[in-house]
Simulated assay, not measured.
Amino acid sequence: MKTISLSEREVRAAVSMREAIDAVRRGFVGLANGEFEMPTRTALRDGRFLVMSAHHRPTESAMIKTLSVNFDRVPAITGTVVWSTLDRLDHLIADAAAVTTLRTGAAVGVATDLFAAPDADRLTLIGAGGQALDQVRAVHTVRPLRHLTIVGTGTGRAHALADTLRAELDGTEIRTATDPASAVADAHIVCCATPATSPLFPGSALPARVHVNAIGAFRPSMRELPDELLATGTVIIDELGAVLEESGEIIHALQAGAITQDDLTELGTALTAAPPAPRGKRTVFKTVGVAMQDWAIARLLADKFLC
């Protein structure tokens, strides 16, 4: 029996964003087809400690992730991902921060590839924290960017992120801003990655045609998007049970009567059938993150290191 432990650097070196997007896409299709046993995650201390698990029936493999979340420290996420199967004694343990940001970015890549306009090349990113880099990398993988605006409450982190991305995104014009409403006005794609507790911008600030990804709010007390956007756009979610329990945006919009559950389409369903006909030209992907995504990345790592 052997146990392989992978650091953040080793996870990053082993899995490209393209590989992650493809793996998470397959995972969402498998989720829609009933391949996973996946209980809603356990949240302790109002989401400061999280435990997530997924069992993939066809491969008899399972993943368990435990992590802590503290936005007052760097990194905000720390923990472990453990992979095991029934047919062997070996285990793999990976850094949870790397897996989490990678799989969250990958889910955004899947949704953006499915719903953003084919020629979309202007991204506004709101938030310059730990999730930000992989949000941009994922979008750029499926929609090569010509323009990127990074919106941060403090200029320091936004400028530092811009400098990092200039080294990666050759030929992309990158600027920083502090006002979300004005920054989204000409965007083709918007990514929200903040711990906000109230909407970041009014729906009227967005152009008529835009794809919005919202990944920051993962508790009922958190919101990044306004009800009016959800009420007038096509809303895609990662998994119904998860968002009904954890997504502040979805819970608030349902309670306000802005949307109904029938207005929500799971990403796996959208991937396995024709995309839902939009009520407007705005699409929204709201994700709180589900364990299948972590399983998808862990399986990639297991295939590489437990061969």
Results as ranks from 00 to 15, higher is better:
residue 44 L to F: 10
residue 102 L to D: 11
residue 13 A to V: 01
residue 191 C to P: 06
residue 187 A to W: 02
residue 265 T to N: 04
residue 241 G to Y: 03
residue 67 L to R: 14
residue 59 T to L: 09
residue 114 L to C: 12
residue 303 D to A: 12
residue 211 H to R: 03
residue 116 A to T: 12
residue 12 R to T: 09
residue 1 M to C: 09
residue 162 A to K: 03
residue 187 A to K: 05
residue 274 A to Q: 15
residue 250 I to F: 13
residue 143 R to I: 01
residue 108 V to L: 10
residue 14 A to W: 00
residue 199 P to G: 03
residue 266 E to C: 10
residue 12 R to V: 09
residue 164 T to Y: 00
residue 135 Q to L: 05
residue 157 R to G: 00
residue 243 V to C: 06
residue 3 T to R: 07
residue 160 A to G: 06
residue 93 I to H: 06
residue 157 R to Y: 03
residue 299 R to C: 11
residue 277 A to F: 00
residue 288 V to T: 14
residue 89 L to D: 14
residue 5 S to P: 00
residue 10 E to V: 04
residue 188 H to F: 03
residue 159 H to Y: 00
residue 276 P to K: 00
residue 284 V to A: 05
residue 236 I to F: 08
residue 117 A to F: 03
residue 257 G to F: 05
residue 69 V to I: 12
residue 21 I to T: 08
residue 105 G to M: 07
residue 61 S to L: 04
residue 137 R to T: 13
residue 232 T to E: 04
residue 250 I to A: 13
residue 280 G to H: 00
residue 184 V to M: 12
residue 15 V to K: 03
residue 290 V to F: 07
residue 304 K to Y: 04
residue 295 W to P: 00
residue 168 E to D: 15
residue 15 V to M: 04
residue 90 D to G: 03
residue 238 D to K: 11
residue 201 F to N: 01
residue 44 L to V: 08
residue 131 Q to R: 02
residue 33 N to R: 15
residue 70 N to C: 13
residue 82 V to W: 06
residue 45 R to I: 05
residue 120 A to D: 07
residue 257 G to W: 06
residue 132 A to L: 05
residue 165 L to R: 12
residue 178 T to R: 14
residue 57 R to H: 07
residue 219 R to H: 15
